[in-house]
Design a protein around this nucleic acid. Sequence first.
DNA 1: TAGATTGTTAATCGATTAACAATC
DNA 2: TAGATTGTTAATCGATTAACAATC
Lengths: 214, 214
Amino acid sequence: MSITNTKKTVSEAVIKRLPRYYRCLLNLEHLGMNKVSSKNLAEMLDITASQVRQDFCCFGGFGQQGYGYVVPKLREALGEILGLNSNYNLIIVGGGNIGRALANYRGFKNDGFNINAVFDINPDAIHIDGIPVFGMESLSDYLKNNPTDIAIIATQRIAAQSVCNTLVELGIRSIWNFAPVKLEAPQDVVVENINMIESLFVLTYRMTNKTTES
Amino acid sequence: MSITNTKKTVSEAVIKRLPRYYRCLLNLEHLGMNKVSSKNLAEMLDITASQVRQDFCCFGGFGQQGYGYVVPKLREALGEILGLNSNYNLIIVGGGNIGRALANYRGFKNDGFNINAVFDINPDAIHIDGIPVFGMESLSDYLKNNPTDIAIIATQRIAAQSVCNTLVELGIRSIWNFAPVKLEAPQDVVVENINMIESLFVLTYRMTNKTTES
DNA sequence: TAGATTGTTAATCGATTAACAATC
DNA sequence: TAGATTGTTAATCGATTAACAATC
């Protein structure tokens, strides 16, 4: 009740900007900056100062009139809003290229995301340093014994929906989906997608339709 | 002049929907469907029929009143708008987890995207089946001799901007960026980003701020 | 105190939705 | 022809920007 969500709903657009504010503030904090104004932030993020203040206002506002924002305090507050003060336990389903890349990438750990296991239909063919790889048939037992906050779906497109169904049935309520499909899931399940091919198509669109002027 | 961009500017929101329309139509085409209405498409994509028609209208409209849209014709037209009727030559800079995953993933080839080479500061440590791995010092020579449409930046965050500068200097005009930084580039350079950590933060935001009601 | 900058309300701008004439 | 569905204009809704009183 203290910080979160004073106003009714926070728009998609605002939510997508929150991680950027957070990252930017983390950088400033590491640089030892103590004070920042909406004008400063706006310049760094290429948006308007008005928008910065408006966005923060959704959550109650964290500044001091006439002064600005205290960097560590604001970063902390945004971290709380984003849920970054907890640790998260993750598993990956699908040990193909993307699944392995995510498993091997150690960067998520810094932000409290621990990848504890990888599941694949063909576990014997996959080796990942420091993370166990199990067959799909072990998923149910694993989840019963190991509380898991987030499941990453990194399977083939064709398998993604059925894997999603299984995960939901086994109690998973948060899915980070890398398969290029729109997953159907109950409304209490949170799904966030990374769709590379869509991003690539946007790139070729811009290449093809580049404006020649200005 | 024939198909593209009748109206002045196409909004970001519309552009982001184009790949979805395209994917959906490709599926319908594979299923052998010949006809589709804006209502059908809207249902499949979870948007309004009005929006579908409005979006297509940006490019002149491809339907027949009273009938709907001819699937292969519409798919073809969208493919042209998205620039998917050409082949593209790509290179990857950065042979870490993401770079290797992208290089090993064969799926892009289906859509005409050929990954021809990988560059890394430590090329000897990296082996990718069927794709040569070179040192960074070979980049300039390679690009002189091998026309390249798109460069993928898959380096560490810290190296990304300098790699970007080099690529731009060497003539690259399209960059698909996987490093979690906002790259500065001349305005005639097209940059499209995949920012995983931002996506993950949006996921934890939704987990943390889930509405209990309804 | 005077200057700066927030929080918030009001104005503007743009995107989505509704409506409907055109027409297949 | 009658029914269906587009293309497009008008209405609505929401997000961004501007403005400014509050206040540090």
